[in-house]
Amino acid sequence: MVLDTEEPETERHGNFTVAGVAHRGTDVDEAALWDSIDDYADHLDDAAVDTDRYAVMFDVDADSGEFTYVVGREVEDTDELSAELTAVEIPQATYAALHPEYESVEEMVLEVHEEVLDGDDRGDDVHAPVFERYESDRDPTTTADREIYVPVRDDEY
């Protein structure tokens, strides 16, 4: 297991929108996605709430292993953004803050989906996406010092 799920810290998060570049599939080139967001920097800088960056993982297909991965920024409004950008709503929920030790996004997404969400029936009750948050001074393409937020039922912790 690459995720430490033993008594994780939990936090309330949500009620915000992340807009950015999306990838759908089983293989994510994180560096290329983060580089591609520079093409939309002007749009996102104007709409962004702050300088933090996010990676959002959702819509995992257990049969094919495909998932959607969006890298971007929190935005107040999506009306003026390019139609090429994808917006993802992060609902208010309780999230477990986990510290992964994985080599790839694919490895982490599949493990969260299979072992954390489905492993104890949380997947049936929780519909929020999994997300990572990066302060502006952190490099989102390195595997060191990552923190992901996985939705959990309120009665779990």
Rank of each mutant, 00 (worst) to 15 (best):
Y54T: 02
V130C: 02
T78E: 03
W34C: 10
E11S: 11
L110W: 15
R138N: 09
A97S: 12
A128F: 03
H23M: 04
H113S: 11
F58N: 03
D137K: 05
D59A: 10
D38I: 00
D77A: 02
H43V: 01
F67H: 12
D121F: 12
L85S: 04
P151M: 07
H99E: 14
R153N: 12
V126S: 10
N15P: 04
E7S: 14
E101P: 13
D38W: 04
H13S: 01
T68G: 07
D52G: 01
A93P: 11
T68M: 14
V152C: 05
S82A: 14
E76G: 10
G25I: 07
E107A: 09
V56H: 06
V71E: 04
E156M: 15
F58P: 01
A19T: 00
D79T: 15
D63N: 10
A128K: 07
G25M: 10
R133F: 06
R12Q: 01
P8I: 05
D137A: 11
D52T: 07
L3T: 06
E66S: 14
A83T: 13
A93D: 12
E89W: 09
A62V: 11
D50R: 00
Y134A: 05
T51E: 15
D39H: 05
T143S: 11
G25C: 09
E106R: 15
D137G: 02
E147G: 02
E115S: 05
E7H: 15
P151H: 05
Y54R: 04
E89N: 14
M1H: 12
D124H: 14
D38S: 14
T86E: 05
Q92G: 14
T26F: 08
E103N: 15
D124E: 15
T68R: 11
A93F: 07
D29E: 08
T68F: 09
A41M: 07
L85Q: 03
F67Q: 08
A128N: 04
H43P: 02
A32W: 12
D63G: 06
H113C: 06
V112A: 03
F58Q: 02
E80Y: 08
S104T: 15
V28Q: 00
D39W: 00
V75H: 02
A41H: 09
D137W: 14
A22T: 08
E7Y: 14
I90H: 03
D27P: 00
V150L: 06
E84M: 10
E89K: 11
D50A: 00
A48G: 00
H13A: 05
V126H: 11
R12F: 13
R53W: 01
E114N: 12
H13D: 03
V70E: 05
L44E: 00
H99A: 13
H13I: 02
Q92C: 04
D61A: 06
R12E: 01
L85V: 01
H113A: 13
Y95S: 03
Y102G: 14
T51K: 08
T141Q: 08
D29T: 02
E107P: 07
D42C: 00
G65E: 06
A144P: 08
D139H: 07
